[in-house]
């Protein structure tokens, strides 16, 4: 069985005909060529496929695409559009040298969300495979913190949670990083939260 659905992906409206069994992740990666969301486990156990879906961070591997007809999807590639407070830029000494010759799309024209810049500033990545999911998740986590939503480590449920490393760690625990870049990820989220 196939269906035609419409999606807004990183600001671009698309319509595709899909098998109703197609997950949102496979629709993005295999049908639309949006490979920023990654397939790490395909069963909701790693977080690599995280995007911002209709305003919230969301796993795309456990979602049938057909159930999200009309949804707005923001991947790490288009994440900068969600940034209310873009960063001024990296400190000079750690500035990334120009690297247009590397394989893959030249990213020079693609703006970064301040969370992404913070990941670069704190080396919050190694192999980079979980990273698109991490940065989307971090944007979601900061929004949830700003909205005063508690987490498992919030001791006082009646108040607003404070920004602490423990809060960041808990809120980022749905995104596994096998390279173990957690220290850098926490530092990056802390920096992004502060700006």
């Amino acid at each position: 069985m196939t269906r035609t659905i419409g999606l807004d992906v990183d600001g671009e409206a698309v319509r595709i005909e899909i098998d109703v069994r197609t997950t949102l992740l496979d629709a993005l990666r295999e049908r639309l060529g949006h490979t920023a969301p990654k397939k790490g486990c395909d069963h909701g156990q790693c977080g690599s496929c995280t995007v911002i879906l209709d305003g919230r961070r969301h796993l795309t591997c456990l979602s049938l695409a057909v159930a999200h007809d009309g949804a707005t999807v923001t991947t790490s590639r288009g994440l900068a559009a969600l940034d209310e407070a873009p960063d001024a830029g990296p400190p000079a000494d750690t500035a990334e040298p120009s690297s247009p010759s590397l394989p893959g799309a030249d990213p020079a024209d693609l703006p970064l969300h301040r969370v992404q810049q913070a990941f670069l500033d704190h080396d919050g990545l190694q192999c980079g495979y979980c990273t698109p999911g991490q940065v989307c998740s971090a944007v979601g986590a900061l929004a949830e913190l700003a909205a005063g939503q508690p987490s498992h480590v919030t001791d006082d449920l009646s108040g607003r949670p404070e920004l602490s490393d423990a809060e960041i760690r808990e809120r980022m625990s749905g995104n596994l990083c096998r390279c173990g870049a957690y220290a850098g990820i926490v530092a990056a989220v802390r920096q992004a939260a502060g700006s």
Binding site: A36, P90, E96, L110, G128
Partner: peptide, 14 residues
């Protein structure tokens, strides 16, 4: 800083 870092945080490193 990682030369491939910007591509990786954007998700455009294939």
């Amino acid at each position: 800083g990682r030369l491939d870092g910007r591509r990786k945080v954007l998700g455009v490193a294939p």
